[in-house]
Design a protein around this nucleic acid. Structure first.
Length: 280
DNA sequence: ATTAATGTTCAGAA
DNA sequence: TTTCTGAACATTAA
């Protein structure tokens, strides 16, 4: 479930090894039985990418963006289980796509691995990414968002704060795991209507968002029990060792040492929180 | 053997 | 307009 910290870790891991590399080939992995969502078609992507270079790698919310010479953008959306890897995939059967580079280097290719196959690989012609971004009206990046942004956005919705945090139009980069962790850090109840948050609460939320996300990036993201998430070199993250509420239902809250963590469902997803630390 | 749960995004409906 | 629901998919636990 790559969220902001995992995607940022991917980008940082890839950057030193793909910048300036010339693309030699793009191919579907032979082990894969089902096609990945590619837009445009593989043939068209090949035509536009071969001989070009990756000039920069960046993160757009939960997406990885490769800036290709002559202005096009290759965007990978990992969704649930997608990974960008330079080596050693968790298994060969879920490799989807491979880009090979020219020249001698430690890594000669880049892979997209995706167990569930919900991820997408999209190539945008020059200028089209900005257009798409605008049309989707992605919210400010979670690491850039200010308390004032929160105040303004919370005013305009009737939804609960945790649901709002997962809406990429409100703020880009937060998913189910970090929404629970951030709210616990901020001592805010996940079911509170976003509208009810005070200026002070919005400030706390902003601060907690930075603290949790930066710490998680430092730890190279969270690798959960199913071991799905890995960085570009197929190494585990370690932030799972610092989770305070996510998947901790029934355990004593590590903050107050009094109450136990509850699990509730919001917007069809599990939310974990401490009723004592995060009162309504 | 079924069924539910996992979590992200989008299309389509309310 | 805003919010909600179900589908896409693979795998595991109950």
């Amino acid at each position: 479930m790559p969220e902001l910290p995992e995607v940022e870790t991917m980008v940082r891991g890839l950057r030193p090894h793909v910048l300036g590399r010339t693309i030699l080939s793009v191919s579907l992995c032979p082990h894969d039985c089902k096609p990945i969502t590619l837009q445009p078609s593989l043939a068209r992507q090949r035509r536009q990418l071969l001989g070009k270079q990756f000039l920069e790698v960046s993160r757009l919310g939960k997406r990885v963006v490769f800036h290709v010479s002559e202005g096009s953008h290759l965007v990978i959306e990992p969704r649930m289980t997608g990974l960008m890897l330079l080596s050693d995939p968790p298994d060969l059967s879920h490799l989807r796509l491979k880009w090979e580079f020219a020249g001698e280097s430690e890594f000669s290719s880049l892979w997209f691995w995706d167990r569930r196959g919900l991820g997408t690989v999209t190539l945008y012609a020059p200028g089209q990414l900005a257009e798409k971004y605008h049309q989707q009206s992605l919210g400010p990046d979670a690491l850039e968002m200010t308390a004032e942004d929160w105040v303004v956005r919370c005013r305009k919705t009737e939804r609960e704060i945790k649901v709002v945090m997962m809406d990429q139009k409100m703020v880009a980069g937060i998913g189910n795991l970090y929404a629970s962790e951030i709210l616990h850090q901020a001592k805010l109840n996940p079911t509170s209507p976003a509208k009810s948050l005070s200026q002070k609460s919005c400030e706390k939320l902003t601060e907690s968002m930075r603290v949790v996300l930066l710490n998680a990036i430092e730890c190279e993201g969270s690798t959960l029990g199913d071991g799905t998430y890995r960085n570009a070199l197929n190494q585990n993250g370690s932030y799972q060792n610092q989770h305070r509420v996510y998947m901790k239902e029934g355990l004593i809250c590590p903050s107050c040492h009094q109450d136990s963590i509850l699990r509730i469902v919001q917007a069809q997803r599990s939310t974990f929180f401490c009723p004592t630390c995060q009162p309504t």
